[in-house]
Each structure stands twice: as structure tokens, then as C-alpha cells.
């Protein structure tokens, strides 16, 4: 039986038969369906995925006319991370003129709202200068990052220390107090950047510290939207699943812990977000076929229920993309094309 070049979630190369690839596609999709209580992919979708995974071509793309908006989170940091020493405005110009970005984001290297707060007035002139010199929509973005509010980084008792001591109520109260401070910081920084002229505010990797982190993001979105009805807010998730670090927090009567993308997007809508960025994580021990079918199953369910535009995250280690510093072109192009072809999405 013919063997096809394939990759695992960690990027390592393997040889697989078409039968093995199809088995992994079905298993990956059913894993998502089981976890999210959503439908698995249909036969023609499996067939399309099998076709692209068995294609001998290095690069796969969408059909003309099916292209989507391509957004970049924190790219002004990424260009410096690889040792290209340009300033942030130059980085924005490189992405808009050379990299084909449809939107960009100005971000500070600390990339969390808390550390940006004391230097926000230093960030504003850079944003204002960038807005004069660029053409494409420009977000200001950072992470909510609730972890920075507990000891030793912040003032509140650390829930991860309280819980093993059996102080569960105290741990939950600490999360509740911390999220109030986080909301204030997001609203403070978001307001300044909007008043400087930002086209949008990005709340990136929401929920990284669990349900309290996600709740703070939703409340901050609600407050910013009430203050500036025309503001564009994008909420991008940290992971596919809201971890119940507090476990009993609710928003609009819905428990946040345990929510997957198709449930999270309804919360983002209710809070007034303009764009939602769902996530599906890559499992390094499973094949690219397993991961991509799983990711598409989650994103498809999210896209079908969403009333606001969704931009699934397709960076390293998410959306079927392998976990590597340099994800291979073969797997990224397949993930990108398949996600865009099979899901009702509005951007990446």
C-alpha cells in the first residue's frame, strides 16, 4: 500500500497509508465531537482532508475567491524576537507592505495589560505616530494575564498555593478580587489607546489563567463597549477550553468553566465583542491529520453558531499547526487552506 509523507503534531516526519490517515481524521474529529458535544465532520469533508494530505505538493491553498482576512497578533514583538532589530513602527510597515497582513497590532514587549498600565502614556505617542504612517487597520493589544495579579507578581494571595492547603473559598475569593483589578487595567489601557485613535483593541489569549481570566475579559469588553459604542474589540482565546480554576464563575447566567469555542463565542457576543478568535490546541503525540480534523470540527461548530466574525487562531501549536519554532510549510499551508475551506470563518 502507498505510503504518504506526513507529520506528527510535534512536526516530526512519518510515513502513513491513506487508510491510516483517514482513520486519524475520523478519530480526531470524533474526539472534538465527544468533548464539545458537537457534530463530527461529514464524509465529503474527510475526503477533502484525505486528498490534501495525500497530495504530493508541498504547498496547498484555497480556491480563488475564498481568501479570508489575515490578522497578526503581537507581530511587532515577533519580528524583534527573531533578531531583526527594527523599531515597532518599522515592523508594522514591514508587515503591511511585505507580509500581506490585512490588520496589524501594536504591542509592548511585556504584552499584558498590567505592565502596560504605568507606561501607557509612553505607548500612546508611538501608536499615534504609527497611525499617521500606516494604512491597514491597527489594533493595540495585550494579554489580560490574570496570573500577574497574585503573589509574588501581584497583591492577591496565590490561589495555587491556597488550594493545596484546602483553602478553596479563599482561593476563589482571591480570583474574584484579582479579576476586578484586571478589568480596571484593561479598561484604563483600552480607553487610552482608543482615544489615541486605535482601530481596535485586542484582548489576546483570554482565559489563560482560567475562568476568572475569561470573565474579566468579558466584563472589560462590556465596559469599553458601553464607554465607546463604536469601538472594535477582538477577544482571542488562550486555549480551546476554559479551565475551571475558580470553577463557579458565570457570565449572563452561564458557567464559564468547561466552555469550548462554540460556547465561548456566545459569551463574547453577549459582552459586545466585534470579533472572536477561537482556539483548538495541537496534540504533539498525534498526527497532523488527527489534529487538523479535530481543530476543524471545533472551529466549524463555532463558525456555524457565531453571529459575529470569527478569526480562528492558526499560530504555532494551534489550529492544526504543529508545535515548532518554524512550522513546516507543508503542514501550515494544509491547515490554513483546509480551515478556510471547510469552516464558515471570517479571518485568521
Amino acid at each position: 500500500m502507498d505510503q504518504f509523507f506526513h507529520r506528527m503534531g510535534d512536526g516530526s516526519a512519518v510515513q502513513m497509508t491513506a487508510k491510516q490517515i483517514m482513520a486519524d481524521l475520523v478519530e480526531g474529529s470524533e474526539d472534538a465531537a465527544d468533548r464539545g458535544k458537537i457534530p463530527p465532520l461529514a464524509k465529503e469533508e474527510y475526503d477533502y482532508l484525505l486528498d490534501i494530505f495525500c497530495s504530493p505538493h508541498k504547498f496547498i491553498s484555497v480556491e480563488p475567491g475564498r481568501e479570508v482576512i489575515l490578522t497578526y497578533d503581537a507581530a511587532t514583538l515577533k519580528i524583534r524576537r527573531v533578531g531583526v532589530h527594527v523599531d515597532r513602527i518599522q515592523a508594522l510597515q514591514i508587515y503591511e507592505k511585505i507580509m500581506g497582513a490585512d490588520t496589524m497590532e501594536l504591542a509592548h514587549v511585556d504584552y499584558s495589560y498590567k505592565p502596560v498600565k504605568p507606561i501607557a502614556t509612553f505607548e500612546q505617542p508611538i501608536l499615534e505616530q504609527a497611525l499617521l504612517a500606516t494604512h491597514i487597520p491597527l489594533f493595540y493589544g495585550a494579554q489580560p494575564n490574570l496570573g500577574l495579579y497574585s503573589q509574588p507578581d501581584g497583591p492577591f494571595p496565590n490561589p495555587s498555593e491556597l488550594m493545596p492547603m484546602g483553602k478553596i473559598k479563599e482561593a476563589q475569593e482571591s480570583y474574584e478580587a484579582a479579576l476586578e483589578d484586571l478589568v480596571k487595567d484593561i479598561v484604563f489601557v483600552g480607553s487610552l489607546m482608543y482615544e489615541s485613535g486605535a482601530d481596535g483593541i485586542n484582548l489576546d489569549t483570554a482565559g489563560a489563567a482560567g475562568d476568572a481570566d475569561f470573565l474579566a475579559t468579558l466584563i472589560a469588553t462590556e465596559k469599553l463597549k458601553a464607554k465607546y459604542p463604536d469601538i472594535c474589540i477582538e477577544i482571542g482565546m488562550a486555549g480551546e477550553f476554559v479551565l475551571g480554576m475558580h470553577s463557579q464563575l458565570t457570565y449572563k447566567g452561564e458557567r464559564l468553566a468547561g466552555m469550548y469555542a462554540h460556547q465561548q463565542v456566545k459569551m463574547a457576543e453577549a459582552a459586545g465583542a466585534t470579533i472572536f478568535g477561537p482556539v483548538s490546541n495541537t496534540n504533539t503525540s498525534k498526527s497532523a491529520a488527527w489534529n487538523l480534523a479535530r481543530a476543524i470540527t471545533f472551529m466549524k461548530a463555532c463558525g456555524e453558531i457565531a453571529n459575529i466574525p470569527i478569526h480562528p487562531n492558526m499560530g504555532m501549536g494551534v489550529g492544526g499547526v504543529t508545535v515548532n519554532d518554524q512550522p513546516p510549510v507543508d503542514v501550515v499551508s494544509r491547515s490554513s487552506a483546509a480551515m478556510t475551506t471547510l469552516c464558515r470563518l471570517d479571518g485568521l
Binding site: 488550594m163 478553596i168 463557579q248
Partner: peptide
């Protein structure tokens, strides 16, 4: 199944 989380499990265990 992801329907209960660490704080709740700890409360039940206690």
C-alpha cells in the same frame, strides 16, 4: 469529562 474542576473536586474530597 471536564464537567468538574479542581476547586470543586477539592471541596468534594474535603
Amino acid at each position: 469529562e471536564g464537567d468538574m474542576f479542581i476547586p470543586e473536586v477539592l471541596m468534594s474530597a474535603r
